[in-house]
Amino acid sequence: MYSINSISRQTTEVTTKARRYAMPRRNLLLRSLLFLGVLTTTVWTAPSVQAAPETVTIAAANSLKDAFRKILPLFEAHNKDINVRVIYGPSLTLSKQIEEGAPIDVFLPSQVEEIDQLEKKGLVIQGTRRVYAGTSLVLIAGTELPAPIASVQDLRTALIRYIAIGDPKTSSVGKVAAQYLKYSKLDSQLKSQVVYAEHSRAVLDLVAKGEADLGIVYRTDAVSNKKIRILDDAPEDSHQPIHYGVAAVWTAKNISGAGDFINFLGRPQIQALLQDHGFDRIAEPQVGLAQRQEGQ
């Protein structure tokens, strides 16, 4: 497991914005066609010499950490020629690292919109974007102390010392939590009580330690934490849908392995594991951004 700081040390220094984003059209097309070949064709050739496992580098949102502790070993067991290197962090931070040229094969943010933003800049390999799961936004409290409220409706009347949310500038969960507070007209009322944390794990820590009475995170963040209890779900129409996406990005070196991993997430066994960790199934036509825009 690697930290966000470790990825920066491995990132190739890029001198200009044009050089960061420039990928020859022909090269990008060839990479996209290669990926599509991975999705549609399986060709097995007996190797004359056993090859060393290749590495697939994955950048994943913090809220995937608990589920991936089980999923990644299963993937490696099914693909003995692949080793997985995973870097966890806030989705917005990971996205910025990818823009700057971080050596990543697969990007898994907690909001598919982060992939769409990269796709608009030409930094996603065509045909690789998928939505594979969703989740809900929940109100949480610690297990050690009595919760000051029982539901999201009580936020309007209860006396609260502090409520922790992710920083909207650095985390997707913070952006969605801020949307909920604004939609519910609680942003002004709770302005002095809101404590911002860098990411969802930091929100969980503040609540578990009693430094904040309440917190707002994704269900996927809270469901496996024994020091946290979920009090209530935020209404679905109070924020944008929370859809987890995956894509191979422009810095990918192991496109074949990236395709194998993206396909693996759709297996029934893996979808069941995701549901055990607070994810919801998503039935979405698997099309690219441009196709979806054309249909609007």
Rank of each mutant, 00 (worst) to 15 (best):
S3Y: 02
I7Q: 11
Y21M: 11
Y21G: 05
R26Q: 14
N27A: 09
L29G: 10
L36Q: 14
G37P: 01
V49K: 14
V49N: 12
L64S: 10
F75N: 09
E76V: 05
I82Q: 13
V84W: 00
R85G: 04
L92M: 10
I98H: 13
E100T: 04
V106W: 03
V112D: 15
E114H: 10
D116C: 04
I125M: 02
T135G: 03
A147H: 13
Q153R: 10
I165F: 11
T170L: 09
S172N: 12
Q189D: 11
K191S: 15
Q193N: 15
Q193K: 15
V195E: 13
R201L: 10
V203N: 02
D205Q: 14
D205L: 08
K209D: 11
E211D: 15
G215P: 01
G215N: 05
T220E: 00
D221T: 08
K227W: 00
K227P: 02
R229G: 07
I230M: 09
E236P: 01
E236Q: 07
S238N: 04
H239V: 02
H239L: 07
Q240F: 09
H243Y: 14
Y244S: 03
V246C: 09
W250V: 03
N254I: 03
I255G: 00
D260E: 10
I262N: 07
N263W: 07
L265P: 12
P268R: 12
Q271F: 09
A272D: 10
D276N: 14
H277Q: 06
P285I: 03
A290S: 13
